[in-house]
């Protein structure tokens, strides 16, 4: 069953065409890792999926339902704020720079969206949020403001915050790139746990170890295209594309 399917996504910033036609399919429970040099369009692709960037043309299906259909910068499908909001609720997003709400404690960060969007009662949101914080190992930090947490803890709260909306798919945009090296592990651990629970995940990452161990499929993006796609063993051991080989040589030294 396909959870995310895109057809021919195109996106330009001014004259710079960042995505030149991306078509992928991600099935339920799959972990798709997107790798590639910076500027290859990985993050933009991810951001297009939940409409943080609006595509110029292409189709996006979520859960086999056509959600976005645009041609030449025009909507061929209703993209009202309400529609976009229902799309975003299905997709959880984790950012490179965490983007926690600094004026809310850890547990309040989790409670805010369920309470204001799904109209969940406060007590219910609280107990649910504490449960999720427990899962990411931060129940003792529930009352702390983000400024009092380490980068790794902040990112775990950010993952928990996305989970609190019970998304069907989790998007990770370089979730460990702004962390000190010694804090990367704890975040990857949480992501591994999620993968084991059969969460559908799309992960833009430079952590090749994670991609190797956890991904069910790896996509190598280069210059706005998908240059190569396959099982991690295949891609890392025996890349077919010259650009993939070059990239992996550079990054795996």
């Amino acid at each position: 069953m396909s959870m995310v399917r895109t057809e021919n996504l195109k996106k330009s910033f001014g004259d710079n065409e960042v995505l030149k036609g991306i078509s992928i399919e991600v099935n339920k429970g799959e972990v798709l890792c997107v790798i590639g040099p910076s500027g290859s369009g990985k993050s933009t692709f991810l951001r297009c999926l939940n409409n943080l960037e609006t595509i110029d043309s292409g189709l996006i299906y979520i859960d086999d339902e056509l959600i976005v259909h645009r041609e030449d910068g025009k909507n061929l499908k209703d993209m009202s704020p309400k529609k976009v909001s229902t799309l975003c609720i299905k997709l959880g997003m984790v950012f490179q720079r965490f983007n926690l709400f600094p004026h809310k404690t850890a547990v309040e960060n989790l409670m805010l969206a369920p309470m204001s969007i799904k109209k969940v009662k406060k007590e219910e949101a609280y107990s649910k949020s504490m449960e999720i914080l427990k899962k990411v190992g931060l129940v003792d930090k529930a009352g702390s403001y983000p400024s009092k947490l380490s980068g790794g803890q902040q990112q775990r709260v950010a993952i928990a915050r996305a989970l609190a909306m019970e998304p069907e798919i989790m998007l990770f945009d370089e979730p460990t790139s702004s962390l000190d090296p010694e804090l990367v592990g704890e975040v990857l651990e949480v992501m591994k746990d999620l993968a084991q629970e059969m969460m559908t995940m799309i992960v833009v990452t430079h952590e090749m170890g994670f991609a190797k161990d956890v991904a069910s499929r790896v996509v190598f993006m280069d210059g706005g295209y998908i240059a190569e796609e396959g099982h991690p063993q295949e891609i890392f051991a025996n890349p077919k594309n010259d650009r993939t080989r070059e990239f992996l040589n550079r990054i795996l030294i």
């Binding site: 943080l52 909001s85 975003c88 609720i89 959880g92 805010l112």
Partner: peptide, 24 residues
Amino acid sequence: GQHEAAKALGMSKFTAMSKVIIPQ
């Protein structure tokens, strides 16, 4: 990033303003 986080969680512009942006 605060606007984006609010949007990614599905908040409307009004909710994002009143619960996330204005308080900060």
